[in-house]
């Protein structure tokens, strides 16, 4: 961990702190916000069907549905496609897409592409399980290979910015996490969302099974 990163660790919680920003060039003009729509309601089409299916598998591996909704329920895959299309600069996009294409999906028949995971037959599920297992193995290897990436260092909090030097595996985790916990599903059904608390108490008792509060925006301190 270097000093600068640790300093940034809490910089967002303080007055007068400024956010570190990285270079970028993605073209995007948003209007949805003013119309009051959910960000992920807008269409995007930058991935191939195979890439799209792969991203669906990956986000569900990273944040699966358990007794609470998972990344697919929150459409984190769609958030990722929007982000790759309109947020990333060409270099970041290249890192992501080649990282995606570098994963071995194994025997993946073209006919299975348009089926959602839960619609598959038992036989296909077992095939699916094999694919997922293999993907987990590859993600784990990627994580080992890039374990010294700055993205993993103490003090790197997923915030308003984006680490342009992040390898594919870190891009994938960050966007899955943001696409999940900042989504309506993640914020309201997995975290606790309270837009109008009414008061402040800085020492409420913490129950062990209590989820964190949802955030207003990724850079927020609470």
């Amino acid at each position: 961990m270097n000093r600068r990163q640790f300093i940034e660790f809490t910089s967002l919680i303080l007055a007068g702190g400024s956010l570190p920003l990285k270079a970028h060039s993605a073209e995007y003009q948003q209007q949805l916000f003013a119309l009051g729509k959910n960000f992920i309601q807008q269409p995007v089409n930058i991935f191939t069907p195979a890439q799209r299916q792969l991203v669906r598998r990956l986000v569900e591996i990273i944040i699966p549905r358990t007794d609470t909704p998972g990344a697919l329920d929150a459409k984190a895959d769609h958030f990722i496609e929007l982000t790759v299309a309109h947020y990333m600069n060409p270099q970041e996009r290249e890192v992501f897409v080649s990282g995606l294409d570098g994963l071995q999906v194994g025997v993946l028949g073209a006919k299975s592409l348009d089926k959602s995971l839960k619609e598959k037959s038992l036989e296909e599920k077992s095939l699916e399980e094999q694919i997922v297992e293999r993907l987990i193995q590859q993600l784990t290897e990627l994580e080992e290979r890039h374990s010294d990436a700055p993205w993993y260092q103490l003090g790197n909090r997923v915030g308003n910015g984006f680490d342009s030097s992040a390898p594919f595996i870190c891009q994938l985790k960050e966007l899955t996490v943001v696409g999940f916990f900042m989504s309506e599903v993640g914020a309201t059904q997995v975290l606790r969302h309270n837009p109008m608390p009414g008061n402040f108490d800085g020492e409420t008792p913490l129950a062990t099974d209590q989820p964190s509060w949802a955030r207003n925006r990724p850079g927020d301190y609470s």
């Binding site: 400024s18 970028h24 993605a26 959910n38 308003n160 984006f162 989504s183 309506e184 925006r217």
Partner: peptide, 29 residues
């Protein structure tokens, strides 16, 4: 009171727009 999921990219900085038009204002954090 706009919730996170209605913000573009869930509130991540719109870097290109900021770089072009708000290259000083963005430092406000």
């Amino acid at each position: 009171h706009v919730p996170s999921w209605k913000l573009p990219f869930y509130g991540k900085d719109e870097r290109q727009l900021n770089q072009r038009d708000y290259f000083i204002s963005q430092h406000s954090g």
